[in-house]
Design a protein around this nucleic acid. Sequence first.
DNA 1: CCCATAACGGAACAGCTGCTCCGGTTCCGG
DNA 2: CCGGAACCGGAGCAGCTGTTCCGTTATGGG
Lengths: 185, 185
Amino acid sequence: MPQKQRADARSNRERVLAAARETFAVGGLEAPMREVARRAGIGVATLYRHFPTRAELVTTVLAERVEACGVQMRRALDDPDPWRALSGTVLEFADRQVRDQALNEALLGSGEVGAAFGAERREHAQALNVLVARARAAGVLRAGVGVDDVRAGLLAIASLRRLPARTSAQVIGRLADLVLAGIRV
Amino acid sequence: MPQKQRADARSNRERVLAAARETFAVGGLEAPMREVARRAGIGVATLYRHFPTRAELVTTVLAERVEACGVQMRRALDDPDPWRALSGTVLEFADRQVRDQALNEALLGSGEVGAAFGAERREHAQALNVLVARARAAGVLRAGVGVDDVRAGLLAIASLRRLPARTSAQVIGRLADLVLAGIRV
DNA sequence: CCCATAACGGAACAGCTGCTCCGGTTCCGG
DNA sequence: CCGGAACCGGAGCAGCTGTTCCGTTATGGG
């Protein structure tokens, strides 16, 4: 029953989403609404007509990426090799972090945006539990390493956002390797 | 030739510094100047008379803590046990991070406040070089681990600021152990 | 082709920030 | 104890933010 909106309205909605994706990826989730509107080539009022509040725009943009993480998680759960599943998840997480400055506030943030993805976060946490349990059962984890340690590593990788952009990719890569080295037996 | 200022002026300066220490440690370096002034029980104009700009207040408050880090670094350089020197530095860094939400922007931040401590940062970097080189020479480091990896670990620890305060201490502790485990042979 | 009306855009509002101006207050040497 | 200089405090400025109001534009069914 939608599709009643005018053609220009729908096209503008797409423009807004595209602009928001770019803007948030580069400048983080705190990027001004005016900046998104300007990049989309429309006025702020139009932006607010499509997304009545800032949080709504942010969650809409992030929903698709959070879902992509879920897909990756489910794929890891199907991997018969426990270490490859766990290490792959860590590396993939680091890689997403390098490419998207905004994703992690949805997965790890404590504010309004974080709360909007509570269900997905619980699902990811549950999947991580399973991955770590399998890895431990396979004997590839150093003694004493638990889910909380892996989660600490992921949190650290995610927190490396806001670094001089040029160096952050290298630092994140090194840290991911470091975390894996610290986890493995 | 100082000491020409009136008694109330000097007392107010102390009040400002005390209030700034509290405020910055709890709320981070972005805490509003009005908040510092209110906590000190004075007006904002008085605050700005003693510290003409926000950065000046911040650097004054941080200078003493940065110096404390320098002391610790020099002590580590005197330690004959290379691994204890390096691991102690990492753990001490993590501990400071837990106790002070603001220190690391001076040591690692890329903004104006970070630039103000360029000399100290270079000194710390140099000391870290030495510590890592000694540890490697002693054969306690995993093959391929370099200064950049240690620095990535420290950066990660520092970036864990802005977490739900109750959990951050545990997470930081786990991460510090994880980094050490990833570095050691 | 026309015009009701959905959709638009920019000025404007409210609230935050760092920082300054200026009239009133307080200290302290003589 | 007095008076001028040193000092204080809050109102105010400029600039940022998210969000809304309302006059203007232009889509598309008849």
